[in-house]
Design a binder for these strands. Structure first.
Lengths: 242, 242
DNA sequence: TCAAAGCAAGTGTGATCACATATCAAAATC
DNA sequence: GATTTTGATATGTGATCACACTTGCTTTGA
């Protein structure tokens, strides 16, 4: 490295313990948008503009347009023929389609994980379960964002154990696509008095601890089907009344 | 629309029959790179540079960098910590990983297609089969590119019938990822005197015509497993001799 | 009063520039 | 002679500009 370059910008803040692979603005924007999408912070059918997001994220348009392009290829966003981009709208077909894909792929992932997850992995997800209980214990205010995050950590901690560098990105893409739908479902749960999600998660952990792949898959399918089924009913009844 | 704008660039070539949704340079570059990747025109581990591709495709760096970013999110390319990008290298684990995912997802897709593909769809894929035979009939020169393209058309014509807007992009992503591997396998076939691929394809069509989902799935699995198994053996024997 | 033309603000796309970093070979130092 | 330093070139990243297209509102004319 040039000595001049070192002197010019070797400020202590940038010189962290990561010698290579620094974080670019583009990556930051991409992660930010991903989090927002998975967390359901955007409404379905909401239109996003490059300059608007750039202002909100305090950068130029460059990193935003690249991040949007990437999200479009993942089907997390949708490019309209006008060249404007929006969050994909919810339809009955799309809900069923997404659920089927998630059952197929996440089911396979958890089957693999059931045989490959060691005691350490089990302990980790059990810790997440306890943390969940703590959050729910002080349920004075429903901290939906926190629950969404914990749910995500729980699932991906398991999927990570399947050891597939191909399946996991696909699951991430599926979560990205179902994020906006799920958010709607969660609000619906809040209105309708929700069933205990933790119960399903405990079944999953029990099956994993017993290395019972089939039971783990069935418990997982029940867990991810529930919000979809709820959302499906809601959409159908809305369609009937209109 | 501004009259001035109309006068300035309403040239007859641009004014095609597509009123909206014109093709951008970025889309062209992206498709071009996709084709090259699926066709296996890039070597595994090959490093790609933005400016190099921009020169080759006769544009500026702008469209190329966006296309590369999209391909990286699809795992069709790989971002090194140096921020340079390359075609992912082939490893034994990756081959098995890709094959498992393809069996899972393409198997599901063809199962759905078996019940939903009408006589018209069957006729289309049969036509592709005949075209394939014609190409193979004049086998004086092995037109590998043509065969790769026909193979791709055959498979995706079937998958399209499954009617899933979620599964099909995932399959495209899988093909993108296995493209470079497959190319290696095809060359290996050429060296070793290949088995007749058309035979497997005929089994698939027969099963589809009979609406036998299970048989279709099995025939498909045999079809896509073959090059992977071949490549796997090749890699293993190479590892042993080293 | 209503519809068509015109205009202005907003938006996506592509090109170019500036800069920090990466890479690699030549030169200098031990 | 081996290792380090130094410099030149190449490359990715982010910002900005120019331009074409879209959109919505205003103005104009029947």
């Amino acid at each position: 490295m040039h000595k001049a370059a070192v002197e010019r910008n070797n400020d202590v803040f940038a010189a962290q313990l990561v010698p290579v692979g620094r974080e670019t603005v583009q990556d930051r924007v991409y992660s930010e948008l991903r989090r927002a999408l998975i967390g359901g912070l955007f409404e379905p059918s909401q239109v996003l503009t490059i300059r608007g997001l750039a202002d909100a994220l305090v950068t130029s348009t460059m990193p935003v347009r690249e991040a949007l392009g990437r999200l479009i290829t993942e089907k997390a966003l949708e490019a309209l023929p006008n060249r404007s981009v929006r969050v994909p709208p919810i339809t009955l077909e799309r809900i069923d389609d997404l659920l089927r894909a998630r059952i197929l792929i996440e089911g396979e992932a958890i089957s693999l994980a059931a045989t490959r997850m060691g005691p350490r992995g089990i302990a980790t997800v059990e810790a997440l379960l306890r943390e969940w209980d703590e959050v729910r214990a002080l349920k004075q205010k429903k901290d939906i964002d926190r629950e969404v995050t914990l749910n995500q950590s729980f699932h991906f901690e398991i999927y990570r154990a399947c050891g597939s560098a191909v399946l996991i990105p696909m699951i991430e893409s599926l979560w990205l696509q179902s994020g906006p739908c799920i958010r709607v479902a969660i609000y619906a749960f809040s209105e309708a008095g929700e069933v205990d999600t933790a119960h399903y998660h405990r079944s999953i952990v029990a099956a994993l601890a017993a290395q019972n792949a089939q039971a783990a898959r069935e418990a997982l399918v029940a867990d991810i089907s529930r919000p979809f089924a709820f959302l499906r009913d809601k959409l159908q009844s809305r369609a009937r009344t209109e």
